[in-house]
């Protein structure tokens, strides 16, 4: 039951999905404006690509995505590690975290606009918030979960200060847990991209918003698939990187 079977079944599943999707508007079960058939999509994609809008939107969104992800992940790791290492710091932040944690990125849009204007920075800010919490909690948990015995090894060999222990043992030992958080953030950040561009910052989200207000649902689907493809690429690259970084795992 191995060999080519998994790939074959995956192909059958995908074909079945596309077949049903194609059949529903064709058989008139739903009007094409509510559900564009997959066969319409290549043409819609070519129109978007030729006009240059698709390329520009992708580049803008990738830029927001990369910077927002980097900021959110960076702050998340730093604060997560710090609160994981130092209890008093964790206690000091505990209620600030509880107040801010449940506020979704979208709720920050008014402030993002007020603080940064209708500007790329505002989009980056919202994406960063979306990633921050995931990575923050992952890093905090990973640091707390580091085997006490390994920390003792660091101490026994003379690495007694916090920074020394962090570099020699805590961070490398916590890395698998931190990377799980980062991988979750990779997906979360794409969701935030759409939200962050809804209010007029150029990118995939803005273009989807425009298309949907014109009922150009085929264009909307083109961008949905674009986003899926970009996520797929980023996630695959990340899994590859992760495997390299964690080659030491059994």
């Amino acid at each position: 039951m191995r060999g080519a079977t998994p790939y074959l079944l995956a192909a059958i599943g995908l074909a079945l999905f596309l077949g049903i999707w194609e059949a529903v508007p064709r058989l008139g079960l739903l009007p094409p404006t509510l559900l564009p058939a997959p066969s319409q999509l290549p043409a819609a994609f070519l129109r978007e690509a030729k006009s240059g809008i698709w390329g520009d939107s992708v580049l803008f969104s990738l830029w927001h995505y990369a910077i927002g992800l980097a900021c959110g992940t960076g702050f998340g790791i730093v604060l997560g590690v710090a609160t994981g290492m130092y209890r008093p710091f964790d206690w000091a932040l505990a209620w600030i975290v509880r107040v801010l944690r449940p506020i979704p990125g979208l709720a920050w849009v008014p402030f993002a606009i007020l603080w940064f204007g209708i500007d790329q920075t505002a989009a980056v800010f919202i994406i960063a918030i979306g990633c921050f919490w995931i990575v923050f909690f992952a890093a905090q948990g990973a640091i707390r979960g580091v085997d006490r015995d390994l920390i003792e090894v660091a101490e026994a060999f003379g690495f007694k200060s916090g920074p020394e222990k962090l570099v020699k043992v805590l961070f490398p030992a916590a890395l698998p847990g931190i990377l799980i958080g980062v991988r979750t953030a990779l997906g979360q950040a794409w969701m935030a991209v759409v939200a962050s561009e809804l209010f007029g910052v150029s990118g995939l989200g803005q273009r989807m918003q425009q298309a949907s207000s014109l009922l150009a649902t085929d264009i909307v689907v083109v961008y949905m698939l674009t986003m899926a493809a970009l996520y797929g690429l980023v996630d695959t690259a990340f899994v590859f990187l992760q495997a390299r970084l964690l080659a030491w795992k059994a």
Partner: peptide
């Protein structure tokens, strides 16, 4: 109590890094 992310040589270098 070797550090699982370090190769053997690097594990033995560990104490020397101080």
């Amino acid at each position: 109590r070797l550090l699982p992310w370090r190769r053997i040589l690097s594990n033995v270098c560990f104490g020397l890094e101080k």
